[in-house]
Structures are given as structure tokens and as C-alpha cells.
């Protein structure tokens, strides 16, 4: 399927008005969205919205435990209303299983699983809106959810996709670009710039590979700054609340409510 759309016009703008190396706007919501879980996060990158929730480390249900480390389970689901065509996918969908196993293999070496022998960490990823870059957004959301759950890890894991339009590399692809361009997804540990995932599902000229690979790794550092800011702010908020330094006034009410367990109407007495 070749598109009539001009993915990169003469002025150097892409279909959604971004420049070549411009990332989509990212917003991060930590914790509180899903009740009963140990940690959760919602990441919005452009029009892609992914929420991740973490349960555990907890007693393994239904076998599958290992005696010297925790096992990580990942389940991915796409909401039927989140894409262009309304479609219900069942749990066994091959694409979902592929994303889930990519997330698992990304995090297995990063999470300190040896600290929790004979237990299990469950990660549930829900893709609420899809506009390209589902895997990188899921990885970013999972990183933040694991941190919110207080699970020890080596470092952040930040992930981004990068494509190439003839000879010009494009960062953080949206749905239109993703379906038409050769693209690569990388996940990086920002501190050491080690790559834990590099996934290439399309054909790409070998001489172009290194260029976009390096570019994506650099861009992941930018993403790391955003994620670091968000987690730091939340940690600070929670610590100050625990120390009794939190002042609850009407203006800061939304920020002060860190757990978000109750809806407003439930609070009214």
C-alpha cells in the first residue's frame, strides 16, 4: 500500500507538522489510576495512550515459579475503540503476544529479579489509543509503573521508534509513518546507553541502520529527562506528604491527592 500522503514535505515538515527530529509531546501520570495494584503509570505520546499496572512481587499463581528469581509475566491488551477500525482482539492474538514477549525480554535483565526468589511480578499493559509506537510507549509506561511499585531495577528503560524516509531519519513515528516507512524500535538504559531491545520488523538498508540506531539512542536520553522529572516530582510529593509537610488547600488539591483512590462524589459526606 503506497500512500499519496507526503510524509516529509519540501519544507522539512512531517504529516503532523513536526520536524524530522521532533518527538511527540509526552505526558506522564504516575499511580492512582488503577485500584489494588502496586504501581501504575499512564503515558501519552502524541495520540498514543498506554497505561501499565504492576502487581507484585507476589505469590506465584498457577505454577511457573523459579527457585532463584522472580518470574515476570506481561499481558498486553488493546482497547477496541483505540484504533481506526473498531476491532476486538482476543487474548491469544499473535501481535499482542509478540509485544508482550518483547516487553518481558526487555525488562528481565533490568529488574533485580534475584531479590525475589519464588515470586512473580505481573505487568498488565493496556493500550488505550493507538497512533503508532505502541511498543515504545508500552515500555516507557512499564518502566514508570515498575518504579511506582518500588521494584528495584538497574536503571530507567526508555524506548523510542525511529524510521527513515529515503535518506532522512524521522524520530518517534506516528501511525501513518509507521505503516509506510522502514522503522526500528530501540529500548535503552540511559545512564550507560546500553541497548536492551532493538526490534526491526521491516526491511532497512544496512548502511542506514547505524545512523538511525544512534539517533534513536540519543533521543532516548531526552525521553529519560522527562521521565526522571516526573518520577522525581512524585517521589518528592509522597515523601513530603509522609513527613506531614503537605499542605492541603483547594488549589493544590488535585496534586495533593496522590493515591486517587476515591472519586470526588465518594468524598462528599
Amino acid at each position: 500500500m503506497s500512500s499519496r500522503l507526503e510524509l516529509l514535505n519540501a519544507g522539512g515538515f512531517r504529516v503532523d507538522g513536526r520536524k524530522q527530529h521532533e518527538l511527540r509531546s509526552i505526558s506522564i501520570k504516575l499511580g492512582g489510576s488503577i485500584e489494588g495494584c502496586d504501581g501504575s503509570a499512564e503515558v501519552t505520546q502524541g495520540l498514543t495512550v498506554v497505561s501499565a499496572s504492576v502487581f507484585g512481587p507476589r505469590e506465584p499463581r498457577l505454577g511457573g515459579q523459579s527457585h532463584d528469581r522472580a518470574t515476570i509475566n506481561v499481558e498486553v491488551s488493546l482497547s477496541p475503540w483505540g484504533s481506526m477500525e473498531r476491532k476486538r482482539r482476543n487474548k491469544g492474538d499473535r501481535r499482542l503476544l509478540e509485544i508482550a514477549s518483547a516487553i518481558r525480554s526487555t525488562f528481565e535483565p533490568v529488574v533485580h529479579t534475584h531479590l525475589y526468589p519464588r515470586s512473580q511480578i505481573d505487568i498488565f499493559v493496556q493500550v488505550l489509543q493507538q497512533d503508532g509506537g505502541i511498543l515504545p510507549a508500552s515500555i516507557n509506561a512499564t518502566t514508570l509503573a515498575l518504579m511506582d511499585a518500588g521494584i528495584p531495577m538497574q536503571d530507567f528503560v526508555t524506548s523510542l521508534s525511529c524510521g527513515i524516509h529515503s535518506t532522512s531519519p524521522l524520530l518517534d513515528l506516528n501511525n501513518v509513518e509507521e505503516s509506510d516507512l522502514p522503522n526500528l524500535t530501540v529500548a535503552v538504559l540511559p545512564r550507560t546507553a546500553k541497548v536492551t531491545l532493538a526490534s526491526l520488523e521491516t526491511r532497512l538498508h544496512v548502511e542506514r541502520f547505524e545512523e538511525i540506531f544512534r539517533l534513536a539512542i540519543d533521543a532516548c536520553q531526552v525521553l529519560h529527562q522527562e521521565m526522571d522529572l516526573a518520577t522525581r516530582a512524585r517521589t518528592k510529593l509522597l515523601v513530603s506528604a509522609m513527613g506531614g509537610k503537605l499542605s492541603i488547600d483547594k488549589d493544590s488539591d488535585e496534586e495533593a491527592r496522590v493515591g486517587g483512590l476515591l472519586d470526588d462524589d465518594e468524598m462528599e459526606y
Binding site: A149, I151, D155
Partner: peptide, 24 residues
């Protein structure tokens, strides 16, 4: 020594640990 969780840094003599803000 690197932190593996998000939380407060605590020090007892020569021992440094990080207490996570939320954990099991």
C-alpha cells in the same frame, strides 16, 4: 553505589540504603 528504587536516601554510619516511597 547506585540507587535501584525511587525514594529517600538513608545513611547509618557507612551503610547507605534507599527506602522506596511505595513498596510491598
Amino acid at each position: 553505589i547506585l540507587s535501584s528504587v525511587c525514594g529517600t536516601v538513608e545513611r547509618v554510619n557507612k551503610l547507605v540504603s534507599v527506602r522506596p516511597v511505595r513498596t510491598r
